[in-house]
């Protein structure tokens, strides 16, 4: 009976070991999870050495977030960065046109002189530049966390203003042999009450 059970277990393990779903794998350090709910914007991927994966997520104001990346052991030295993408509009000259602009007569008090119809009296014209302004979209990125330099293996933040952030995960190149494996990019929001806490 014991041999029978052992064989069944080995059979199941044999089949399961060829599963490729990265979300089902359990290789992250449990101590990283804290009291955060990761069931919203986390991402799982099968990657190769030399890959860079960027995940763009939304973080809401008034919420606390924790973000980290973990990788299967066979993928060595995987690092991640948190990047703030910025978008701003810059006032630029779109077009400059030249046109005739009328010159109106003024009296000694600086008031416009009117003709018999009540319209301002034109004494001549001048050639002037008419500037049409527009806005150009300027985008930039700034790195606010780098796992290679940080003390903690995760990025924690209390968000004061809703924004987009980019989580960039870098899998180093391998000189000897290309490796393939799973990474898990975990984006967690702090639970409202401790009773909601669950891994």
């Amino acid at each position: 009976m014991k041999n029978w059970i052992v064989l069944i277990i080995l059979l199941i393990i044999g089949v399961e070991s060829f599963s490729q779903r990265c979300d089902n794998k359990d290789f992250c350090d449990k101590s990283l999870f804290g009291e955060f709910d990761f069931r919203s914007q986390s991402n799982y991927a099968q990657v190769y050495s030399g890959d860079t994966v960027r995940v763009k997520v939304v973080v809401y104001s008034g919420q606390s977030y924790r973000i980290f990346t973990c990788a299967e052991r066979k993928l060595k030295d995987v690092v991640f960065r948190i990047i703030y993408p910025e978008k701003r509009f810059k006032r630029v000259v779109k077009e400059v046109t030249q046109k005739d602009v009328p010159i109106y007569e003024k009296n000694k008090n600086g008031e416009f002189v009117l003709d018999e119809n009540g319209n301002k009296k034109i004494t001549g014209t001048i050639f002037a530049n008419d500037t049409i302004w527009g806005r150009d979209l300027i985008t930039s990125e700034s790195v606010i966390y780098d796992s290679r330099e940080a003390e903690e293996k995760y990025w924690d933040s209390d968000v004061h203003k809703t924004r987009l952030i980019i989580i960039e995960t870098i899998i180093p190149e391998e000189t000897r042999k290309e490796r393939v494996g799973c990474i898990q990019i975990m984006v967690g929001r702090k639970y409202e009450t401790s009773s909601q806490f669950r891994r």
């Binding site: 890959d51 763009k56 984006v187």
Partner: peptide, 14 residues
């Protein structure tokens, strides 16, 4: 292939 952007949005519950 080696560098790609993945986009995520919050779930309804979030």
């Amino acid at each position: 292939v080696s560098s790609k952007m993945v986009y995520r949005v919050p779930t309804p519950i979030e």
